[in-house]
């Protein structure tokens, strides 16, 4: 039995192209997990709150969250802050996905408790490699 299937990947990314490339990239690494994409921070937060009602999560599912930083309504760092401030969510692994490699931004995300910070590289091969490592990472965190 594969552990992978039990993790639902939530992606918040306002750029359709980026979202498609990320999903595609993850699929290419062989990941079969359910992936749900949101195009703003507000929707992904509502979803998370909804599935964390009354203690445990719906269907006992595990989640992994990928957040873009610059998003409309609620931005990625705010979603990250909210997740890490709630006892029932703080163990959810959060991966920040952004186009900036500003050291201060990275520092801020790690301070808020993000688990991985990935700069979206323009070079797609590198991006695919990163996503592949990420797929590997997703398996490890389950074990």
């Amino acid at each position: 039995m594969s552990y992978n299937r039990e993790i639902i990947i939530l992606i918040a990314e306002d750029d359709d192209g980026h979202a498609e490339l990320i999903v595609e990239g993850l699929r290419e690494t062989g990941l079969k997990n359910q992936i749900i994409r949101f195009d703003n921070g507000s929707d992904i937060w509502d979803y998370l709150v909804d599935v964390h009602k009354e203690g445990g999560t719906e269907n006992n599912a595990e989640y992994l969250v990928m957040l873009d930083i610059n998003m409309p309504l609620v931005d990625g760092t705010e979603v990250l802050r909210r997740i890490k401030n709630r006892d029932d969510m703080k163990n959810i692994p959060v991966i920040m996905l952004t186009t900036t490699d500003d050291p201060r931004e990275i520092e801020k995300c790690y301070q808020l408790g993000c688990n991985v910070y990935i700069t979206k590289p323009v070079e797609f091969i590198k991006f695919a490699e990163t996503l592949q490592k990420l797929g590997f990472f997703l398996q490890i965190i389950k074990v």
Binding site: G17, L21, P121, V122, I125
Partner: peptide, 17 residues
């Protein structure tokens, strides 16, 4: 420069595809 990188990611990504 930050915002301009965003479409660039797409151009590169989709061209690769």
């Amino acid at each position: 420069s930050h915002d301009l990188r965003s479409p660039l990611v797409n151009i590169q990504g989709f061209s690769t595809r």
